[in-house]
Amino acid sequence: MSKKESMNDMARKEWEKSGLKYSDISEAMFLRLVKILDETLRKNTSGINDLCVTMKPKKYAPVFKKDYRGGMREAYIYCRADYFTGREAISFNSDGFIGFCGWACTTTTEPFIEAFKIWIKELLEE
């Protein structure tokens, strides 16, 4: 198992350990993750210039799809940098899989995982 895979798997295990379910996540909670991620990416030192959450064009804005109770059914955050737009940053897929920037190297993935862990910690402290 590569370091990147283990980092991603460890983050997924933290989610499982938290006991949180998609349906527990409101749109406001999801948007807090977007904000934490953007702040973390702006402090990023991975060598990718101008790495941040994509808000425009609209097709790359964060996506939050609700379940019948108003909780999260699936959600997606995209990112951009100086040489790309609209790459998947963090995805909460409808089948329960949580993805972390599958396009990125281990060093680039670290701030995404860091933001995700901060977010989980905040949710558990509420």
Score class of each variant (00 low, 15 high):
residue 25 I to Y: 05
residue 108 T to L: 14
residue 18 S to M: 12
residue 82 D to W: 08
residue 126 E to F: 06
residue 71 G to C: 11
residue 69 R to K: 09
residue 10 M to Y: 06
residue 91 S to I: 13
residue 99 G to I: 03
residue 41 L to V: 05
residue 26 S to H: 02
residue 100 F to G: 02
residue 94 S to Q: 04
residue 106 T to N: 07
residue 65 K to W: 01
residue 120 I to A: 07
residue 123 L to F: 05
residue 6 S to K: 15
residue 25 I to L: 04
residue 105 C to G: 15
residue 65 K to V: 13
residue 43 K to E: 13
residue 122 E to N: 12
residue 111 P to H: 11
residue 88 E to T: 09
residue 68 Y to C: 04
residue 73 R to G: 01
residue 26 S to L: 14
residue 126 E to V: 08
residue 89 A to W: 02
residue 125 E to R: 11
residue 89 A to S: 09
residue 3 K to L: 12
residue 97 F to P: 02
residue 37 L to W: 01
residue 110 E to D: 10
residue 118 I to F: 13
residue 85 T to S: 11
residue 92 F to T: 05
residue 13 K to Y: 02
residue 94 S to N: 10
residue 106 T to Y: 07
residue 5 E to G: 14
residue 39 E to I: 06
residue 119 W to T: 07
residue 66 K to R: 13
residue 48 I to D: 01
residue 71 G to E: 07
residue 56 K to V: 01
residue 36 I to Y: 10
residue 104 A to G: 00
residue 75 A to P: 00
residue 65 K to N: 14
residue 124 L to T: 10
residue 21 K to I: 07
residue 57 P to K: 08
residue 114 E to R: 15
residue 120 I to M: 06
residue 112 F to I: 13
residue 113 I to V: 15
residue 9 D to R: 15
residue 1 M to H: 10
residue 51 L to G: 00
residue 53 V to G: 04
residue 53 V to R: 05
residue 18 S to P: 00
residue 39 E to Y: 04
residue 63 V to C: 03
residue 9 D to A: 14
residue 121 K to A: 10
residue 22 Y to T: 01
residue 125 E to N: 14
residue 4 K to R: 15
residue 80 R to D: 12
residue 13 K to D: 04
residue 19 G to H: 08
residue 100 F to V: 00
residue 122 E to F: 10
residue 101 C to Q: 12
residue 94 S to E: 15
residue 61 A to G: 04
residue 55 M to E: 05
residue 1 M to W: 05
residue 118 I to M: 15
residue 88 E to S: 12
residue 24 D to L: 13
residue 1 M to A: 14
residue 92 F to V: 06
residue 71 G to P: 00
residue 92 F to Y: 11
residue 96 G to A: 01
residue 105 C to K: 11
residue 39 E to V: 03
residue 103 W to H: 12
residue 124 L to I: 10
residue 88 E to I: 05
residue 62 P to R: 07
residue 81 A to Q: 07
residue 57 P to M: 08
residue 16 E to A: 15
residue 64 F to C: 02
residue 47 G to D: 01
residue 15 W to M: 06
residue 26 S to K: 11
residue 4 K to P: 03
residue 92 F to D: 04
residue 55 M to S: 09
residue 107 T to D: 04
residue 104 A to V: 02
residue 16 E to Q: 15
residue 88 E to K: 15
residue 42 R to S: 06
residue 59 K to F: 08
residue 87 R to S: 06
residue 103 W to F: 13
residue 33 L to R: 14
residue 119 W to K: 13
residue 17 K to S: 02
residue 116 F to E: 09
residue 5 E to K: 15
residue 27 E to A: 08
residue 121 K to Q: 11
residue 80 R to M: 13
residue 2 S to W: 08
residue 7 M to F: 09
residue 124 L to Y: 05
residue 53 V to M: 02
residue 17 K to Q: 09
residue 73 R to T: 00
residue 109 T to I: 14
residue 4 K to D: 08
residue 90 I to R: 13
